[in-house]
Amino acid sequence: MIDLDYKNLATGVEERLDEIFADDLRGYNSQITKFQYFETPSLANLKSIIMSLEWEVTDDHLIDLIQEIKRLQKAYSENDQLKKLLRLIFHLGRYIRIHKSHTHPYIFKMLFRFYNSSSKIASGKYSNHENAKIVNNEIKRYLSLKAYLKRENKSIFRRSLKKANTLEESLLSSIDSLSKQKPFASKDASKNHYRNLNNDFKELKKFIYLEIKKLREDLQRIVTLIHKKA
């Protein structure tokens, strides 16, 4: 096994590059900054994550959001008002995690709104009373959003149920009309063939009827559950 002395090689390469680019390297600030992670409480990361989420909902961004909220909750452990807002953001994050790309667009607006209010509180420019007022307003908004989404979900189920009923009717009527149709085959075709075809139609009709019935029952059960929860 041959080992290359890569440490000396790296030094040699660096010296050669200094020779080549000597004039240029003198001309500018040769300071390369090693990134320092923000240890001080900062909401900048949170905004960046929310913007990324608005652009594309991915598991990575959602994990980032949860981690960032946990970090901020620790960093602002003494700021109860801010912690409440962070909790609201966390709940919205959980909603996005469930609904992914089907998330209601208003959720992202709300995320930005909560972020803005959080940065207002974190800035320390407002009194405790003003902070409490900001948070209470946001909680009210959150609750009304929650109620709105519940209503939306209910109406979606109602629409689905109606759609299923219409589908059932249209399918059954088309099958009926098909089975009543006189066969257009030639006179030579055997009678058994038409009888089999008729039986197949009847079976198909029965199958579709049962499937749609099950579907309707499921939807009704979900609607009843929602009503009970509400």
Partner: peptide, 25 residues
């Protein structure tokens, strides 16, 4: 304007060279 262009190149070449860990059979 060329500001820090050569420095960028120098740095990445140095980083890459320092990263080579070669053992050949």
């Amino acid at each position: 304007t060329g500001e820090n262009v050569a420095l960028t190149l120098k740095k990445i070449i140095s980083m890459t060279t320092a990263n080579i860990k070669i053992s050949l059979n």
